[in-house]
Design a protein around this nucleic acid. Sequence first.
RNA 1: UCCGGCGUAGCUCAAUUGGCAGAGCGGGUGGCUGUUAACCACUAGGUUGUAGGUUCGAGUCCUACCGCCGGAGCCA
Length: 431
Amino acid sequence: MVDKVYISETGDYEGREVLLEGWLYNKRSSGKLRFLLVRDGTDIIQCVVFKGDVTEQTFEIADKIQQEASCRIIGTVKKDDRSPLGYELQVKEMEIIASSEDYPITKKEHGVDFLMDHRHLWLRSTRQHAILRIRHEIIRAAREFFDRRDFVLIDTPIFTPNAAEGTTNLFETDYFGSPAYLTQSGQLYGEAAAMAFGKIYCFGPTFRAEKSKTRRHLTEFWMIEPEVAFNDLNDNMVLAEEFVTHIVKSVLKNRKRELDKLERDTTLLEKVEPPFPRLHYKKAAEILKNCEEDFTFGDDFGAPHETLIGEKYEKPVMIHHYPAGVKAFYMKRDPEEPEFALAVDMIAPEGYGEIIGGSQREDDHDVLLGRIREHNLPEEAFQWYLDLRKYGSVPHSGFGLGIERTVSWICGLKHVRETIPFPRLMQRIYP
RNA sequence: UCCGGCGUAGCUCAAUUGGCAGAGCGGGUGGCUGUUAACCACUAGGUUGUAGGUUCGAGUCCUACCGCCGGAGCCA
């Protein structure tokens, strides 16, 4: 009985006969030789079929097998320095499990739209493997970071009865005859959980119905949001920079191969280390003034502004104390300068823009109630949220990190659509 | 919603001033004992996004529409 092995394990079987199961990635030939590149998800191995070594039937199979046909191959593992894997398989027998007629994704380049129409098949390519393995590592490291610090994972609801910040950018669904909305953030529920458990995080999909057609936007994306009781804005920034550092270091350590595959220059990633530069909004606005970029003091920063500031530093930058008027109702204002909110955005370097948005939350019941009224929000819907300020309110803060933008930055991609297995964009909900 | 760009073979693209619609890849057939996006020869493959207009003649110029891409706003 031959051992069935994964390609990633073949190094342990040098000189031995093994059984591989996989799909044909590519095929080349030369006279009486057939070179089959076979993948099984763990890696790719070149299988060499020599006409003199196999039956006529096996050689025929090796000759005719189509791209992405599934197959079973028995052969001997041989060390070979010409192989990227270090090993290849000298084939003895093979069989086709299922054929693959006219596989649409060929070896030549394709356009993005075509590839996105075939996203279910595109996932089989090596570049997508590298990106999605890095995504996995980022998520793994993010959870590890909070788990090690004894944060409790609290899953927040996806159906919500009302909008946190107005309904225009929310997806509405029919919830047994009443409108319900897909969540745009777990934060408010995270605050309730932080009052119960002290330090928590939530991790789940979020939905924005904004008609954004840019390389940074998805309508469905994943966000990881910690919330910590008794943390002020400064604690929040320390947590954020340590968190991002842990993620970057984990990827550099555990996914070197994938970064190489993507030809990512890791020079700047290797410099990610606390402390990150911190910029008061006023200071950031001053930088923009010197850049001749169109900007009015008091406005929020647009994407070009963020890029400009982000490119001035080698590490991620944290901009804090935004004008209260441009920020959400739940953000606490600085008692020293009440025109500014205790908010912080983290801007990734190399033009990747905002990856984190966070703040210290308003913890005073009456002030918060006033804000809800100022914003014309439905007061009754926020009773439970106001309760958190009625029963033992404490200073607290948190932030949300966008997974796809983080993957995009760390992988050095120019578009977020490749960072999620099945992206949902304004113009795309297939496949 | 606004601004800009692009729609030609299954895919990626070319077609000079408006003058015979082409190449590579992929498919098919044949050849080669070490290929690395293998190579070589042959072969099939087209309502040039749609509708109208200008012209002797439109892939090319004009109008409208459709689709996609990028950017702005909004945000992670």
